[in-house]
């Protein structure tokens, strides 16, 4: 049984209130969703709160996971981002994050066992990071502001005094470039 099939079976069991299945999903995605939540909220307690809410929704609404929509990780990351961005909006902490400083602050060593799966994951992660790093600074800024801070294109335009058309073009070019760089990676089945 591959990871996707396993995930679907686990979600089916969770929808039947199988706590063991919830724990399995938790163990499988805890680190990834926590890291993602932390990237957005920039606070350990808030990130934990996001993760808690995420798995509360997984537990209570597992049946809503539409298998046709693809990987469980995609579904969970979408919910994680929604929760985290909502939290940011409620707290109104809209200060832009300095990516350089951010990388330094989160330079916590990975203590996970160096399994083959982890090696593959790290390699894929490295590819995505490299693709992101190859973006221009102004492109990184719009990706950061919209994707990781939850701003709309209009809010980015206002905050950085950039014409809306410029914001749109930067996003368009950035996404196309990422698509070009990562087209191979997204076809990998054993991504997570």
């Amino acid at each position: 049984m591959n990871d996707i099939a396993e995930d679907r079976e686990l979600m089916r069991r969770i929808s039947q209130k199988d706590a063991e299945a919830l724990e399995c999903v938790y163990d499988r995605y805890e680190r990834a969703v926590y890291s993602f939540a932390y990237r957005i909220v920039q606070d350990t307690m808030a990130a934990e709160e996001v993760v808690q809410e995420l798995f509360l929704r997984v537990w209570n609404h597992a049946e809503r996971y539409d298998q046709s929509q693809g990987k469980l990780s995609t579904w969970m990351f979408t919910i994680t981002r929604n929760i985290a961005v909502d939290m940011l909006r409620r707290k109104s902490s809209r200060a832009p994050v300095d990516p350089t400083k951010d990388e330094t602050l989160r330079g916590i060593p990975d203590l996970k066992a160096n399994t083959e799966e982890q090696v593959t994951l790290n390699w894929e992660r490295q590819r995505i990071k490299e693709a992101m790093n190859e973006l221009r600074e102004d492109q990184k800024q719009v990706i950061e502001s919209i994707y990781f801070q939850g701003l709309t294109q209009h809010e980015v335009s206002e905050r950085y005094s950039i014409p809306l058309g410029t914001v749109k073009s930067r996003v368009r070019l950035a996404i196309r470039q990422l698509h070009k760089k990562l087209a191979g990676a997204v076809r990998g089945e054993n991504y997570l």
Binding site: S35, R39, K112, Y191
Partner: peptide, 27 residues
């Protein structure tokens, strides 16, 4: 492509005991 962006973030170790706190809260 966008689905890969969450993997671009730095790997961060969860706080100690988070699993117990989260699961006990949920269950």
């Amino acid at each position: 492509v966008m689905d890969t962006l969450p993997f671009a973030v730095e790997d961060v170790a969860p706080p100690k005991g988070m699993k117990n706190r989260v699961l006990s809260h949920i269950l």
